[in-house]
Computed example of a mutant assay.
Amino acid sequence: MSALLAATALKLLNHLLAQTPGGQEKLAAYAGRHARLAVGAVGVAFAIAPDGTLAESAESIPSVTLRLPADALLRLPHQGEGVLREARIEGDAALAETLGQVLRSLRWDAAEDLSRVVGDVAAERVVGSARSMLSAGGDLASRFANAGSEYVADEAQMLIRPAASVAFASDVDTLRDDFSRLQKRIELLERRAQPKS
């Protein structure tokens, strides 16, 4: 990871840590320890400062490495905990557990940051509108997905609905049983029709 990108990532993490109650205090217990957070092939190495913030680290062998899937940053806003559960941990388990707890608790207070630029009331309105739009977007995506699946199942008849599949399977079972009974009846009639010697 380039030095500029690493510095930016650490600045962002420290900003979020400052907005997370208790986060810095938990990390301060591990002051002087080195860690690496890797997302896919990209990673940032950092040291834990005495005040619990994160600083750049040139340490080649960190105490712990947390590896997240390559698509973690895209999935994190929607799947938060699920993405963090996929993390692979190498090294000091206690430090990794603390880092995991702190990372899971990070929350961005967008209204707080925006209020410095536009004021408290305007920031709350902007953030509220953004949440509404995101919620409406999620609702729209859900409706679109439902409409698409209904079209594929009903109009285009490319898929079979579960109820229709169950009914079809039941009909096939009934037909199979009827066929077996008919076959046995025919065999019985053939045996009766054969001349006795």
Rank of each mutant, 00 (worst) to 15 (best):
A93L: 11
G32P: 10
A28R: 04
G82R: 15
Q24P: 06
A145F: 05
L12E: 13
A6N: 03
E124R: 08
F46E: 09
A96F: 03
G23C: 06
L12Y: 12
D113I: 04
A35Q: 04
L95Q: 04
L95N: 06
P50W: 14
A55L: 13
L68R: 00
P62W: 00
T174C: 03
Y151T: 07
S135T: 14
L99P: 03
A58K: 06
V172E: 06
L159V: 08
E90R: 09
D51Y: 12
R36K: 14
R176K: 10
L73V: 03
I48T: 12
G22H: 01
E25F: 05
A145T: 05
Y151V: 10
D154L: 13
L134V: 13
K196P: 12
S165F: 08
R131S: 13
Y151W: 10
R67Y: 00
L134A: 13
R104C: 11
E81Q: 15
V117F: 11
S129L: 14
L140R: 15
H78Y: 15
L95C: 09
V127P: 05
G82P: 15
Q194D: 12
R104D: 06
K11W: 10
Q19N: 08
Q19T: 06
S165C: 01
R75T: 01
G40E: 04
R88W: 01
S170C: 01
V64Y: 04
E187A: 15
L159C: 12
N14G: 07
V44T: 03
A55S: 13
R125Y: 03
K184P: 02
L54K: 10
L37A: 02
V39C: 00
G80D: 14
A93P: 07
G43V: 00
K196S: 15
G22P: 00
I61T: 08
L134D: 08
T20D: 08
R75P: 01
L103E: 00
A18M: 09
A136K: 09
S60I: 01
Y30W: 15
A164R: 07
V126D: 08
L10E: 05
R67S: 04
A163K: 09
P62V: 00
A31G: 09
H78F: 15
F168R: 10
A193P: 05
V83D: 05
G148F: 05
R36Y: 03
E90S: 11
L114E: 10
A193N: 14
V118R: 13
L99R: 02
D92T: 07
A29E: 12
F46H: 11
S60F: 00
D173Y: 12
R104P: 10
L27I: 11
R191Q: 13
I160N: 06
L182P: 04
L134S: 12
L99S: 10
R36I: 02
E150M: 05
S135G: 14
A94M: 05
T98W: 03
L54G: 04
R191P: 03
N146G: 07
E59S: 06
L175C: 07
R185T: 05
E155I: 01
M133V: 13
L140S: 13
A145N: 07
R67W: 02
G80A: 14
K196F: 15
S132Q: 12
E86R: 13
I186K: 13
R181G: 11
L175Q: 11
